[in-house]
Amino acid sequence: MKIAVQSEDFDLNFELTRMRESRKDIGALVSFVGLVRDLNDGDTVSQLTLEHYPGMTEKALQTIVLDATSRWAVLDATVVHRVGSLQASEQIVLVAVASAHRDQAFKACEFIMDYLKTQAPFWKKELTASGERWLDDKDSDHDAQQRWQLP
């Protein structure tokens, strides 16, 4: 399991190769990469700045990955989240999950992203033509997280 919060970019192929070569019982490797878009709420975004809570962020991500591991047959997982200033089309986040079969890996990957969005202490600030603005949390993200709750 690898959890990293960093300002540097990451290399998807390097991370997937590392996971793939670490063991021979992996049958499915699912990954998600989140990117900076140049348009949000109808405005052109020239820069995105990500702030986080050092110490808590790593712990929250670890808890989320462990929760996923307890619910699905996850063999390995990688979460890399960038902080600092990013430009349009840059990579923000990588979640990669390895399991024996695709169903488990797809579900665990989605679960980790949905929880990361609503539980991990990151905050986005956009720079648009009219200045800087902090983003508000979205109901759709909370709904996406709620659907995983066990009865």
Partner: peptide, 9 residues
């Protein structure tokens, strides 16, 4: 710590 709802990802 106090902070607004999180918006990462």
């Amino acid at each position: 710590a106090f902070f607004p709802p999180v918006t990462g990802g």
